[in-house]
Write a protein that binds this DNA or RNA. Structure first.
Lengths: 200, 200
DNA sequence: CCGATAAAAGCACGACCGTTCGCATCCTGG
DNA sequence: CCAGGATGCGAACGGTCGTGCTTTTATCGG
């Protein structure tokens, strides 16, 4: 890896941390240059515009998420164990050993983009979120074909419900500082699994 | 109401709309002055600082929410009917006839404040969110004392679950433009009610 | 209807924003 | 080891930000 690629990668890592804490709006070239001990113009040269910087940091965050959450979870056995493992890693990604300092990168970004005008950055985030919802639904489908879950359960509904638990967890834990947030999230997930599991 | 109070109120209404769409970070004095056809300095004179403007708009949004969602819902009969009515109005507040143009004011603000340094604005938002979580839990408690819900159900857990449904609804509907978002939210709520209702 | 007072405008400031450009300096392949 | 391109710096630009002043205009009670 050449010197340029190296700094570029380091810059994007720091940028992802900043965005996770302050949102895309809080990512400023001057601030980023300070943190990296680079001049504004020197840093700017790596990305020809701010939009490309934002695009690159979204890409970096998506890679990070795949690396830390998705790929390991897909090694778990199909069905319920995989669903459990994925959920556990999602929790740790939001707050914990897998997390960026500001919590889930996409939770920070999604809220500020939901009413933004269309554009490359928004489109990329929406694409990532849709892909992720599909992934959760597909993990659930492996549980259907393994006979772990009720055949009439809707994978898309499951993905919607899991997303809700995670968002509420992020909200309670980060903003409200509720010490019982993790317990509530795990309780909610157990209740969800219970509801979609085959009757015994 | 004097002329000054009138302008101030109109400014705060417009500010609440802006914040609901773009977050507190998108609320700028110049933009607000343009929208109101006022000069920057003329508008600024109503609030001695930007922080006081932010504080005032949060206050205004909280009043609006109480007016449109909480107070009407509390007129419904105690217990399950009140819980249903409250949830329905919450959905309409997030997207619908009760909503600001950018969706739920607090959904926009909460995400960008979750890792912000403490301060009057953040404190006020956290207070409002805590009060609201308590309100939802208390509505659930009326259902407990009416015998509608299982005595072993946890009101705080219920509030956590409802918040998750609403956040996921906001996310799916606004960002991902999922046409089935409302169906999923209502399905999730019915399942939640089912789970906490007394067995028959 | 007029004079005190409230409301809004006009203008200027320092700070930071993204961006450009010319110049120094480092790395690196031949 | 040296040439030449990759990499980074400094200064400057037009804009917008929040925030003070002073001045003009509108409101409203006596």
């Amino acid at each position: 890896m050449s010197k340029g690629e190296e700094t570029r990668a380091a810059v994007l890592d720091e940028a992802a941390r900043i965005v996770s804490a302050t949102g895309l709006g809080g990512l400023t070239i001057g601030l980023l240059a300070d943190r990296m001990q680079l001049s504004k113009s020197g840093l700017f040269a790596h990305f020809k515009s701010k939009e490309q910087l934002q695009l690159a940091v979204v890409e970096r965050a998506a890679d990070l998420y795949t690396e830390r959450v998705v790929r390991p979870a897909l090694k778990a056995p199909r069905g319920e164990p995989r669903a459990r493992d994925l959920f556990d890693r999602q929790l740790r990604w939001a707050t914990g050993d897998l997390a960026l300092p500001g919590g889930c990168f996409f939770a920070s970004v999604a809220a500020e983009l939901d009413d933004a005008p269309p554009g490359p950055v928004r489109d990329r985030v929406v694409g990532a979120e849709r892909d992720h919802a599909d992934l959760v639904a597909n993990v659930f489908r492996t549980g259907l074909s393994e006979g772990h879950f009720r055949p009439d359960a809707d994978p898309e509904q499951y993905a919607f419900d899991v997303k809700g638990i995670l968002l509420s967890y992020h909200h309670s834990g980060r903003l409200l500082a509720d010490p019982k947030a993790e317990d509530k999230a795990r309780t909610a997930f157990e209740a969800l699994l219970q509801a979609v599991s085959v009757v015994e």
